[in-house]
Amino acid sequence: MPEVSLCNSKGRDAQVMAESVRSPVLVRWIDGQDRQATSARILKSTLDYDYDALLQRVGSPQDVAKALIAGDPEIDPETTGSFLRDTSRVFVNCDRKIVYGVTQIEIVRNPDGSEKTRRPRKAQMPNVNADQPLLWSGKLLPKREVYNKFVFVQKLQVVHINGLTYDFLFDIARQLEEKNSLLLVGAGPKAAQPLILRYGALPYRAFLEGRTRGTEYCLLLHLSNIELKAPAAPTAAAEGNAS
């Protein structure tokens, strides 16, 4: 539950919490005895026993096929089928050895795949925390004009942590509800930068929505990283096959 510092229309800031509103998984799988089954990751083969390793060992794809018919060269009886626990992510080079020092380069491409630019990869630093208040941008976007311009892919619910912040957030929610608008929320001194919630996370444009019901309120921070519009150039036929 990240802590955020939020400003109201008077320029007063307060530290509040932003909670996830993702719905829990509602489907459980049970066996014939009504016992819940669990999923587990298991090992099929290590690099020493995969196709490339077999190819290197026997020489040609035809010989790999013959070896597979003759025996089980792809199976390591010691490890195949074992549960994967305490694993780590590593980089391996073309010699299939672990590499301890790598350079990561980002290649920015246009929608048609053509290269636009190259740059060293740099993880984005979060710009939402208790020390950096999110300023009141004052940009109120009527709901009827904004709901079909952006795609709201995630949301967080902003909640109070004490009586003072309850009043603070309730007032913001009521103010936004009365205007029937979403407030554009941004980071930085001009409240114009997209929000980066965690180290290395994707940046999102954010919109604050307020609802009230009696003495209760609901303050939602909608996150969006895509507009609802058709691609500029016609693309190939519909993805996937419905049949």
Partner: peptide, 27 residues
């Protein structure tokens, strides 16, 4: 030289490449 991501197993030396793992359902 180009590198790709792999999974280092708990034994500290075995590496699993793309497609080297699967999902099982257990009682």
């Amino acid at each position: 030289r180009a590198c790709e991501l792999g999974t280092l197993l708990g034994d500290g030396h075995s590496v699993v490449g793309k497609g080297g793992t699967g999902l099982a359902y257990l009682s």
